[in-house]
Design a protein around this nucleic acid. Structure first.
Length: 338
RNA sequence: CUAUGGGUUAUU
């Protein structure tokens, strides 16, 4: 049975969920590890509903979930915002008081409640963990506040973490910067920026790109540009926030210049770049130009317009009062409108 | 050394 489980796990880790399922289905015996391996496989492939169905199926077949199964399933709930199911899983933990104080279980619970927007519950469990709190737990809590519109609370949490002597890592910095973006806290952003510089973490492309995004979202385009210019490597994800920043303040000309410069450096626009460009058209009422860019997307750059792009086109025509045209666009969409 | 915890950019 351990060999069979290892084979299922191997296929999961190789990214072949179908093969994993096939082997799982012909196993002569299945234990809690077989099921948990499959459930985690669905989770890792983003099939969270399937993962949760699998959890139910397992119970129907009389296999009792253990704490690992629960942690994995809590993650599925986090990813799809399945609060009720998450609450039920939480209640199903045997030795709940014991496991709530376990860092891994506690973090999975805090993360689940935070992602589902039950911040009070997340905070309560977080407080309960007291001495053992590590950077991952802190980051889950900060991200929860940040993602639900509580930028101030997120920053307070970020500060408290440092006061308690837990050093932030790149994930924490990214959350802190996003919290600044969400409330336009330029000064706090600069403070965090200075710290990132001190630690030499600007060489990390994720952190560097997030800094550009933070300044751009705070409408500090000059500062955004300064960070951008100092990035050791620039990819499309470094250009996009800068382009979006200009697009959002209505600088369509500057936004387009940036796109040109990017192309000149050999970096091709991606679907996000075009959302920025189309959004800029919307903000400046350029409904005619938008068709040019929309067509160039597939013709010149080989990017198949996604739903967001079609939605942007609809938005542009609504903003310019061309509701009839917007209606036609919706009707003629090659994708099903949302 | 068969399964388990946090991550960046865009439209409404």
């Amino acid at each position: 049975i351990a060999v069979g489980n290892a084979v299922v796990d191997m296929y999961v880790k190789c990214g072949s969920l179908a093969a994993a399922r096939e082997v799982f289905d012909i196993l002569r015996e299945r234990d809690v590890i077989s099921w948990t391996t499959l459930i985690t496989g669905y989770l890792e492939h983003g099939c969270c509903e399937a993962a949760l169905e699998c959890f139910e199926q397992m119970r129907l077949e009389g296999i009792h979930p253990n704490i690992v199964t629960i942690i994995s399933s809590l993650n599925s709930c986090s990813n799809i915002g399945a609060t009720e199911k998450g609450r039920i899983l939480h209640a199903q933990i045997e030795d709940k008081e014991y496991f709530e104080k376990d860092l891994v279980v506690g973090t999975a619970l805090v993360n689940m409640y935070a992602k589902c927007g039950s911040l009070a519950m997340a905070q309560k469990l977080f407080d309960n963990l007291k001495e053992t709190r590590d950077v991952i737990l802190w980051t889950a809590m900060i991200e929860g506040y940040m993602d639900h519109g509580y930028g101030e609370a997120a920053l307070k949490c970020f500060t408290r973490m440092q006061l308690e002597g837990v050093p932030p890592d790149m994930f924490t910095f990214v959350c802190g910067l996003k919290a600044c973006s969400s409330i336009g806290a330029t000064e706090k952003g600069q403070e965090i920026h200075a710290e990132i510089e001190r630690l030499g973490m600007t060489v990390n492309s994720l952190v560097g790109n997030t800094l550009v995004d933070m300044y751009a979202k705070c409408d500090q385009l000059i500062l955004a540009r300064q960070v951008f210019d100092k990035l050791p490597t620039r990819d499309v994800d470094s250009w996009n926030p800068l382009i979006a920043g200009h697009a959002n303040v209505g600088d369509i000309g500057d936004a387009l210049h940036l796109v040109e410069n990017m192309c000149r450096e050999g970096i091709m626009p991606d679907p996000v770049t075009f959302v920025c460009v189309l959004s800029a058209c919307g903000h400046t009422g350029m409904s005619e130009k938008s068709h040019t860019y929309f067509e160039a997307m597939s013709k010149d750059f080989g990017i198949v317009p996604a739903l967001v792009h079609h939605n942007s086109m609809v938005d542009i025509h609504c903003r310019t009062g061309q509701l009839d045209k917007a209606r036609v666009l919706i009707q003629k969409m090659p994708l099903s409108p949302d």
